[in-house]
Amino acid sequence: MTRDYTPSELLTVMASREMVGVNTIFAGVGIPLLAAILSQRTHSPGLTIIVEGGSIGPEVIPGKLPISTNEMRLSHRAQMLLGINEVFLLTQRGFLEVGFMGGAQIDRFGNVNTTVVGPYEKPRLRLPGSGGANDIISLCRHTVLVTPHERRRFVPKVDFVTSPGWLDGGDSRARSGLIFGGVSRVVTDLGLFGFEAGTKAMQIASLHPGVSLEQVVANTGFELIIPGTIPVTAEPTQEELDTVRALDPDRRFL
């Protein structure tokens, strides 16, 4: 069976489904924000999207997708425009149910690196930095990571913990002072992943249609926990695909 969608379209659709039943989400820039807008227009019409630039509850115009989380495009039909510090403070207070964000490197405990590849003082690759990612993953009630599934991204241990997931696993996150939240889900273009209750190590939750276990293992740089039976995620619907394509016709993100 051939499938008529791209990996980034699949990724966006699968991420949007994670927002079903959620009321308030903190969306990071790129695919997470696109997925939030998709979810608002399909599964979750009452979803309040909150972004670090200060927009509360925007309704983005299809074809006018924001590139920055601070621009006018993201203020369209917003309910409120807050200061940046105020947005983070109400996240610290606990009003944000789910954070959605991407990442350059992700490890088996859901830690995210967007700072450096290689040593910090003299990196092989200098990346842009945290932005609000560290704050989202530290302060939301829980966080969903959204990323293409590539071996170079899925590393055993991130070179730098920009945004703390479960740190070294077990109760290490809480011991560091991060008593709220944590990474509950990783959405990739190959499958959905969760974290084992005690160890907090990444495990397979489901694989997307047509994806084999071998394919996932080959694209992951660490040992995933593999359950006895692995469910298959439901195919993207035509409505989901049509909506996401209409949102980003210039394919700045798709």
């Binding site: 910090y120 560290n134 530290s138 945004s163 740190l167 002072g177 991060l178």
Partner: peptide, 8 residues
């Protein structure tokens, strides 16, 4: 409550 436990 932010930046705790991180490289930052």
């Amino acid at each position: 409550l932010t930046m705790l436990g991180s490289g930052l």
